[in-house]
Simulated assay, not measured.
Amino acid sequence: MKVMALRRASLSVVGLIVMGLTAGCQRIETPRAETPTPVVATAAVEPLTASGLGLSGTVRARVEAPLAFQVGGRIAARRVDAGQSVQAGQVLFELDPSDLEQAVRAAEADVAAAEAALRTAQADLERVRTLATQGFVSAQATDRAQLAAREAASRRDAAQARLAQVRNGRAYAQLRAPAAGVVTEVTGQPGQVVAAGQPVATLAQAGAREVEVFFPETVTPPATGQARLPDGRTVALALREAAPMVDTLARTRRARYRADGLPAELPLGSVVSTQFALPGQPTAPLDAGASPVGTWRVPVGALDERAEGPRVWRVRDGKLETVPVRVLRVDNRHAVVAAPLQAGERVVALGTHLLQQGMTVQERAR
């Protein structure tokens, strides 16, 4: 009986210990890690007038000509570097003249041989004419002698023309600047073998300069515009030429504008801001029942074109909300959209594919 009582007491103690441990485990709560608030890069929307288009332009020379040798050969010397100013007639490259000198000697020898053959033919003609007056040869023999002399004269003329050609070729061993200007690119190097007509440099000729602008494929380059220079001045632009086709890769159209007021100290390749007047953009609502929209410029990374259609993510009081948009134009940096936005509002500029409606975010302005 005592043994049984001891066993019951031991079991009771073990049960109390187990219950205490279980209760203690239930009271211990594992702390939860707080999820950090996502940080998003935002940018303010920029209002645009319905008829305005701003793009970047590049200052170019009116004439930019690739330079090449008129004969082939191995480049022996390069006497110009990219960015160097040159004068008309200045030597830029030289070819190895060895083969050209040999060609001149061969042509001179051909001329000498042709002249000797002509003298022989003329002497034969004189003898035949003398014999013909004495009745010793026929008129047919005289005609043959005359034809031989004419043929010898033609061969002499052809040899002289070839000699003039190879002498010109020897002069073409020196590539000279056709006009004063700036060498913008150099591709030929000493020791390189080039063919006739293969460009070895590009010369931007001095004189009139222009502004080159690339328009979206849906925009016809307007006839006039204006450029804002880095110092804040504006210059009137007048369309000179526009590419008839859209570039298949960039989906843009190139246009060149005359800009007579560009200062001479503005270097070639400088980037200027341009503004053009375009036909009015649509201001109708995006869908039935929506309020009228404005035209805005946003970073191209702000567009979210998932299954729900084009939209941007607006940040209000630290939370995200979607705004449907109509895409009007897109370039490599910005998109022009029609949307019910307001001046000063900020939209997410990057990573829109990771966002959800109502998400709490922390802004980091670009």
Score class of each variant (00 low, 15 high):
22 T>K: 00
184 T>V: 10
92 L>C: 12
336 V>A: 04
203 L>V: 10
121 A>M: 09
134 Q>N: 08
329 R>G: 00
139 A>C: 02
340 P>A: 09
174 Q>K: 10
96 D>K: 12
290 A>T: 13
151 E>N: 13
37 T>N: 03
30 T>P: 14
41 A>V: 09
94 E>H: 00
204 A>W: 05
344 G>F: 02
147 L>H: 14
29 E>R: 15
167 R>E: 15
102 Q>I: 03
349 A>H: 08
36 P>E: 14
205 Q>V: 12
23 A>T: 14
94 E>F: 01
83 G>F: 03
55 L>H: 04
299 P>E: 07
53 L>E: 05
41 A>Q: 12
167 R>W: 07
184 T>W: 01
143 D>P: 00
150 R>C: 03
92 L>K: 06
116 A>F: 02
215 F>E: 08
11 L>Q: 07
172 Y>I: 00
332 N>G: 09
352 T>S: 05
47 P>F: 04
239 L>S: 12
96 D>M: 02
60 R>P: 03
88 A>Q: 14
186 V>Q: 06
127 R>I: 01
52 G>I: 06
53 L>P: 00
123 A>S: 14
186 V>E: 11
176 R>G: 09
218 T>R: 14
266 L>D: 15
285 P>L: 01
152 A>R: 05
118 L>A: 05
242 A>E: 13
68 A>Q: 07
2 K>Y: 00
2 K>G: 11
293 V>I: 04
282 P>S: 13
218 T>Y: 10
266 L>N: 15
197 G>D: 12
65 A>C: 03
150 R>T: 15
270 S>L: 06
93 F>A: 09
329 R>C: 00
71 V>L: 04
107 A>S: 01
223 A>N: 13
190 P>W: 07
245 M>S: 15
